[in-house]
Nucleic acid binder design. Structure first.
Length: 578
RNA sequence: UGUCCGGUGGUGUAAUGGCAACACGUCUGAUUUUGGUUCAGAAGAGUCCAGGUUCGAACCCUGGCCGGACAACCA
């Protein structure tokens, strides 16, 4: 560094993107030969709910950093509160992480694996005079703790002898005292401006079945006494968590100061901002509320911002990972525009999803000059973005269905679709002209009559005709019926959880629309659950996870971008205002 | 009226003492047998404010202002 006199212009390194603040910190540690130049992270979920998009950020960060720096990332379940945790959640979490494409190899751990070691550490602190058994009630504890602006006062039990503390703590473990009657506290500083340092609770008595240790324990460590030491036990070098744990860091360090042995790897906690998404809630507690009160169809409802919800909705792991990478890592509070998520899935599916035709809200079109008993097998490409995806045969006949929305009796001038006297192309087939239509008593269009121009056959057009609009369609006799579910955002408000009102007041009543009589082209009969398609001109769809062959169900992942719909909407809004 | 952490286009993220960049979104236009994709382009911040240091400050210093976190035997 000292010989850097000639200010050489820094070489442009095109492959090197700018580092986020955590990567910078890691590289600094690496340069200082800290932790034997190892990088070891962990993803530490509590198994008390399903993983959501916010966890995806943490997963991508922790596993991604390990990969980037040739290190390892553990999966550790932070299971120190048995009353909220269960193996159902453990299983779902493991499945979601694997689905995203990450692997903890043989490093699957549980904080409950360390209960015995944690207990030993607690005894050590007692013996060192740094922890004591306190008999204060819950209310008294709160009272003695003070407030953020006023210091607390010391517990009358704070100065028990080491022998008495040790005896009492052992008897706590042995089950001699009722739940809540005593606890073990760290002896730190009741007047600290940091609330977390005011003799924090280390252990509480709680008789409850634990999903892994059963009834072996009746005392359980608190998060603060478990997390840092678990990191230490696993030789974690960089312990990443979200901003709300920033105030816990002095306590994290205090325990480590008193427990870490010479020469051992000492983990450091680094905090980053959690991910917030507009129009959605990312809070396990609130998501649980939606599930328990049947606002949604379980944790994996396609409207849920859970990993399993996105999966059922048709999102891909790549889209989620790309999204999270685009969002970045920093320390300021943020709200990500849900449009960025939608952009990520469209970007991915545009490359991967085969195109098919499906009519969601059908109206019949009869091509009067087309022969009665003829079926043509038309060849359509599966994906114009990727020739290697080949092509397929699509049957065409005298009667087809098109979308009701694609016909207007009296269209505005920029409407490029079917209308009386107008010509449009049926995608991959012919140009047809609308001659006539029928209506029922309520004025609904029931039938549209057209003539086709045989010269305009797709790929062999000799007519030289240019038409503005191209419609998707399915041949009526060949179509099969399916249910299609359209999803919209679950909440109407851009920030449903930041208001004084109950977040449930912002639930969008139209977040799910079910179309039961949709007609799909024949290839879709063979589709398997989770298969993904682009329904041309509509959006991306996938076969529902629980779909059955008898009556298949397709979920809309996301719409195609639709500049026509956008213009319509803007005009409507202007009319309302004007 | 405490401690800690943050304030850069509408949103998110860069620039680490040297021309404020990239992505999403928005708006034009072209291409298109998907009103998709693709392509070309535009608008939009002078970096919360005020001082200071410096030839030069988004970046360093001082003081404000604004926002967030913290008072569960939750994590």
């Amino acid at each position: 560094m000292s010989t850097e006199d000639n200010k050489s212009i820094p070489e442009e390194e095109p492959g090197k993107r700018s580092l986020n603040f955590i990567e910078e910190k890691i590289e600094k540690d690496l340069n200082n030969n800290k932790n034997n130049r190892q990088v070891h992270t962990r993803f530490p979920p509590e198994p008390n709910g399903f993983l959501h998009i916010g966890h995806a950020k943490s997963i991508v960060l922790n596993f991604g950093l390990a990969k980037e720096y040739n290190g390892k990332c553990n999966l550790r379940f932070d299971d120190t509160n048995p009353i909220k945790e269960s193996t159902e959640y453990v299983d779902s979490i493991k499945e979601d992480i694997h689905w995203l494409g990450y692997d903890w190899e043989e490093r699957l751990y549980y904080a409950s694996d360390y209960f015995e070691q944690l207990y030993e550490m607690a005894e050590k602190l007692i013996k060192d005079g740094k922890a004591f058994v306190c008999d204060l009630s819950q209310d008294q504890i709160a009272e003695y703790r003070g407030t953020p602006t006023e210091p607390g006062i010391e517990s009358p039990y704070r100065n028990r002898s080491i022998e008495e503390n040790l005896d009492l703590f052992r008897r706590m473990r042995a089950g001699e005292f009722p739940d809540g009657s005593r606890m073990l506290r760290a002896k730190i500083d009741m007047s600290s401006p940091n609330m977390h340092l005011r003799d924090p609770i280390m252990y509480r008595i709680k008789r409850s079945y634990h999903h892994r240790t059963g009834y072996d324990w009746c005392i359980y460590p608190m998060y603060d006494f478990a997390h840092g030491q678990s990191d230490y036990i696993e030789s974690i070098t960089h312990s990443l968590c979200t901003l709300e744990f920033e105030v816990h860091r002095p306590l994290y360090d205090w325990f480590l100061d008193n427990l870490v042995e010479e020469g051992e790897i000492r983990p450091q906690q680094i905090e980053f901002a959690r991910l917030n998404l507009s129009y959605t809630i990312v809070s396990k507690r609130k998501l649980l509320e939606l599930v328990e009160n049947d606002y949604v169809d379980g944790w994996d409802d396609p409207r849920m911002p859970t990993i399993s919800g996105f999966r059922r909705r048709g999102y891909t792991p790549d889209a989620i990972k790309n999204f999270v990478e685009k969002v970045g890592i920093a320390k300021r509070d943020n709200v990500i525009d849900v449009a960025l998520l939608e952009h990520s899935i469209r970007e991915d599916l545009n490359k991967k999803a085969p195109r098919v035709m499906a009519v969601l809200d059908p109206v019949k079109v009869i091509i009067d000059n087309y022969p009665d008993d003829t079926t043509e097998d038309l060849e359509l490409v599966n994906n114009p973005e990727d020739e290697s995806m080949g092509s397929r045969k699509v049957p065409f006949s005298k009667e087809v269905y098109i979308e009701k929305k694609d016909f207007m009796e009296d269209p505005p001038k920029k409407f490029f679709r079917m209308a009386p006297g107008r010509e449009v192309r049926l995608k991959g087939a012919y140009v047809v002209k609308c001659d006539d239509y029928k209506k029922d008593d309520q004025g609904n269009i029931t039938e549209i009559h057209c003539t086709y121009d045989p010269q305009t056959k797709s790929g062999a057009d000799t007519s030289g005709k240019k038409v503005k609009g191209t419609l998707h369609w399915v041949s009526a006799p060949h179509a099969f019926q399916a249910e299609v579910r359209l999803y919209d955002r679950l909440f109407n408000d851009p920030a449903p959880s930041s208001k004084d009102e109950d977040f449930k007041a912002f639930i969008n009543p139209d977040s799910l629309k079910v179309f039961k009589n949709c007609y799909l082209e024949p290839v879709l009969k063979d589709a398997e659950p989770e298969d993904k398609f682009q329904f041309q001109r509509i959006g991306y769809f996938c076969v529902d996870r629980y779909s059955e062959k008898r009556l298949p169900v397709f979920n809309q992942t996301v719409t195609l971008k639709d500049t026509w719909a956008k213009k319509e909407k803007q005009q409507q809004n202007q009319k309302k205002k004007g």
